[in-house]
């Protein structure tokens, strides 16, 4: 391979053989992820696009649930894949961490960084318009319930925005993304004990904020 020019593996095969029967030859969505990763590690952008397509929704969803803002989540999605591409040579499947977990780790760190950066710039919680523009809950047809839910959501958002970044991440991963405590510890390079502590504190903060709504009528369990 010439210096300064990364020629995709499949292309070398194409240029050197007449009838390639190797699975590397075909890059499409059916190609298995490990093969795509190997090609992307060689600098193949088409293979990296396949990886992007396979994981974008999960990464975006996590960033959005954490940051609760579409534009910030889009920035994190972008940063996650740029960082992943540059760090791809460091990814070793034989080390036991699957690619999805590896990517989640990058996304988690990018999201926490984004939150810290945004907090430095602006300490205010979500703007009321942003809260109003969030997708509505299922029963918004009843105006009374809808107004009440909007008020509760503002309290939830305020409570979440007051949590320290890691605490908020633990809560997001456990409550909204359904990660287990062990998976969260893995994503944050932390211990299960520490994750539990963050989770307890986050839930306690939310309980304090939402106490007045649950002691009113309407939320009987």
């Amino acid at each position: 391979m010439g210096t300064g020019c990364v020629v995709p593996l499949y292309l070398i095969k194409l240029l050197s053989t007449k009838a390639p029967a190797d699975p590397f030859f075909c890059i499409d969505t059916t190609m298995d992820e490990q093969a795509c990763i190997r090609l992307a590690q060689e600098g193949d952008r088409a293979a990296f696009r396949v990886i992007f397509d396979g994981h974008r929704q999960r990464v975006f969803s996590l960033a959005y649930r954490y940051l609760r803002n579409q534009a910030d989540a889009e920035d994190v999605l972008q940063d996650t894949f740029i960082k992943a591409y540059h760090a791809l040579s460091l990814y070793r499947p034989d080390k036991g961490l699957n690619f999805s977990a590896w990517l989640t780790k990058i996304c988690v760190n990018a999201s926490i960084d984004a939150l810290r950066k945004n907090r430095g710039k602006n300490l205010q919680p979500l703007e009321p318009e942003e809260v109003a523009n969030m997708p509505a809950p299922s029963h918004s047809s009843d105006p009374e319930i809808s107004t009440r839910n909007k008020e509760i959501r503002e309290h939830v958002d305020r409570a979440l925005s007051n949590l320290p970044p890691r605490q908020r991440m633990v809560f997001t991963l456990r409550h909204y993304q359904d990660f287990s405590i062990r998976e969260i510890a893995e994503s944050l390079d932390s211990t299960e004990g520490s994750v539990k502590k963050h989770l307890f504190r986050a839930v306690e903060s939310l309980k304090k904020r939402l106490r007045r709504f649950v002691t009113e009528d309407g939320y009987e369990v």
């Binding site: 397509d53 974008r56 509760i152 909204y176």
Partner: peptide, 25 residues
């Protein structure tokens, strides 16, 4: 109380993550 708080959280949480322009990203 904790159960009720969880119920409230689940009740107000938007079910869907908004769509985004994947090609632009």
């Amino acid at each position: 109380l904790t159960k009720k708080v969880f119920a409230v959280l689940d009740e107000v949480e938007p079910a869907a993550v908004p769509s985004t322009d994947w090609d632009r990203t």
